[in-house]
Structure formats: C-alpha cells, structure tokens
C-alpha cells in the first residue's frame, strides 16, 4: 500500500498551524479529511461527464465521421441503413441566435451599468441591482412562455413584418416571417435573458474602477460622456469577458429557445426563418431517439459539441476577467 502513507501525510496538520495553543492536538486534520472529497467529487464528475459524452457519441463519429457536425441532413428512418444525422443546422442556429443575443445584451448592459453606478440615486440603485439579479435567476420557462405568447406575436407584427416588407432586398431580412418563430425571436429572447448576467459582470467592473481615475478624467476638463468613454475603455477586458460569459449562457439555453425558434432543420442567414439549436434539438428529440438505431449517438455528439463550446467560452471569459481584476488592483 504505497498510496496510504501519502494520504496520511496529505491530511496531516502542517507544523505550527493551529498547534500553538493546544497540547494534545490530533495529528490528522479532520476538517480537511471531511471537506476534500467535495472537490474530488466535482473533478470526477467533470471527467466522468466528458467521458460519457465522448463514449456515447463515438458510434456517430465512426458511422458518419466529422460530417455529423458539417452536414445539414436529419433523416430519421425506420430502416437503420437509411438513417442519417447531420447537426449543421442546429450548430448554426446555436451560434447565430447567441450572437444576436450578445448584440442586444451588450449595449443594454453597458448603459445599465453606467446608469446604475454613476447616476442612479442610492436608494433606487440597490433596487435596480436586486431586480436585475433576480431576473438572472428566474426559471427560464417563464421567459419561454412569455416569449412564445407575447414577444413573438409582437415582434412578428411590429418588427419583422415591416422590415420584411421594406427591406427584404437585404439578405438577412429576406425570409418571410410567416409564424414569427425564428432565429430573430430566439435571439431577442436570449438577449433579454442574458442581459442581467452581462450587466452583473460589467457593473461590478465599472464599480471597481478606482476613484482616482474618475477624478483624473474630470480634472482634464472632460464632459461626463467623454469621461465615461475613457472609463469604459479601461474596463474593456471586463466588458469582453461579460459578453463571452453571456454568450456561454445563450449557447446553453434550452427550453425558452425551443418555444420560440420554430424547431426546423434550416440553415439560413435570414433572420426571420425558423431554425434549431443544439440544446432545443436534444430536448425535442430525446423522447423518441430510442426508436431509431443511430439517433442517440448523434444527439450525444451534439451534446459534446455544446460541452466543448461551453468549456472554451467559459474558460476564456473567466481567464480574461481574472487577468483584468489583477490589473486593476493598485
């Protein structure tokens, strides 16, 4: 048992730590023994999930190769040999809607942060922050139902229709908004949903700008607007990471999106065309995936793609945020 002594050594109290005031202190740190499995559990779970996804997606990779990600065919057939699953449309839909979401969420959260930090009176300020944080924590189905019954009809009637009518020569406005369920609706809804996340990060960063820089901008005889622009430049990395983390959330959002995107295997740049996202695809197809021989691995492959996108996006976002926070400390 060569491992055992290692563990014992790991869990032993360090010299001089807590031992000064106690004579008969135990040599093993019990609290350390109790708490350390938690982190091991999290790590194991991470490795386990990644393995499970990869292992289960493997048949799809073997059968179709990487085309499972790059082809837009979704052919469920009773005869197993005719089945073919390509995820190009949902992957495109995921990225497209998330980008729309960020384009909407970013300006709103920046404006929101500047207002809350610089202008809002103290009492209202906390109220705004609480509301915003609460919106971030609402169950997403609440957004989904509101989106499907209120937002989509509104957008279709007052935004999509006029844009299509007058500007349909522009490629992104060229698809007719027949039902209103579309990339556009999903993107707007996602934008509304991730705004609280992005603004939480940007607001914190904007609040952390040392007071001396605020004084410096104003001492140069700049207007509030010019000063704010400089300070926003100063927190640019934090804004960027806020955008990336919000993108990560938008990519993963499932129920609300599946209610408003139209769930169609479509690969279009037209904003008003219905589409699919990976997560809404998995949620919709999971129930009947067992009927078909090859569908489940394809769904796992989709899950793996999401896993990896989410991983990269979050790691990059958090890394940038940490690096910026370190730079800000005077």
């Amino acid at each position: 048992m060569p491992l055992f002594p290692f563990f014992l050594r790991y869990f032993r109290r360090k010299k001089n730590e807590d031992t000064l005031h106690f004579k008969n202190i135990k040599r093993i740190d019990t609290l350390k023994v109790i708490t350390s499995p938690a982190i091991i559990f999290v790590l194991l779970l991470f490795v386990w999930m990644l393995t499970v996804y990869f292992y289960n997606a493997l048949p799809a990779f073997i059968r179709e190769g990487l085309e499972v990600y790059f082809r837009n065919t979704w052919q469920a057939a009773e005869e197993a040999s005719k089945e073919y699953y390509g995820l190009a449309a949902p992957i495109w839909g995921t990225i497209y809607t998330s980008i729309i979401a960020i384009l909407i969420a970013l300006p709103i959260s920046i404006a929101d942060s500047v207002f809350v930090v610089d202008y809002a009176p103290k009492k209202v300020k906390n109220f705004f922050i609480i509301i915003s944080d609460m919106m971030a924590g609402l169950p997403t189905i609440i957004y989904g139902i509101w989106g499907a019954f209120v937002l989509v009809p509104f957008l279709q009637k007052y935004v999509m229709m006029p844009l299509y009518k007058h500007l349909s020569f522009i490629p992104i406005f060229s698809s007719p908004p027949i039902t209103g369920y579309s990339y556009f609706s999903a993107g707007i809804l996602l934008g509304i949903m991730v705004t609280p996340f992005a603004s939480a990060i940007i607001r914190e960063a904007y609040q952390m700008v040392p007071f001396t820089y605020r004084e410096a901008t104003l001492s140069l005889g700049l207007t509030r607007y010019e000063a704010t622009k400089i300070l926003l430049g100063y927190i640019k990395p934090a804004i960027f990471s806020g955008a990336i983390l919000a993108f990560g959330r938008a990519v993963g959002e499932t129920v609300a999106v599946s209610l408003v995107i139209g769930n169609t295997f479509n690969l279009s740049i037209g904003l008003f065309a219905p589409g699919y996202t990976i997560s809404s695809l998995i949620a919709n197809q999971f129930g009947n995936a067992f009927i078909y021989k090859h569908m489940l691995p394809a769904l796992y492959a989709g899950g793996l793609a999401l896993f990896i996108i989410g991983l990269i996006v979050n790691v990059v976002g958090l890394y940038l945020l940490k690096r910026w926070q370190k730079n800000v400390e005077i």
Binding site: P210, T212, Y213, E215, A216, S219, I230, G233, Y234, K236, N327, I330
Partner: peptide, 13 residues
C-alpha cells in the same frame, strides 16, 4: 491641471 496622490496615468492608454 491636477496631479494626484497616486500616480494615475490611464493604464489602458
């Protein structure tokens, strides 16, 4: 013009 206690050139410029 004003000069401050902590040297505060804008670090991102």
């Amino acid at each position: 013009g004003m000069v401050f206690q902590y040297p505060n050139p804008f670090p991102h410029l």
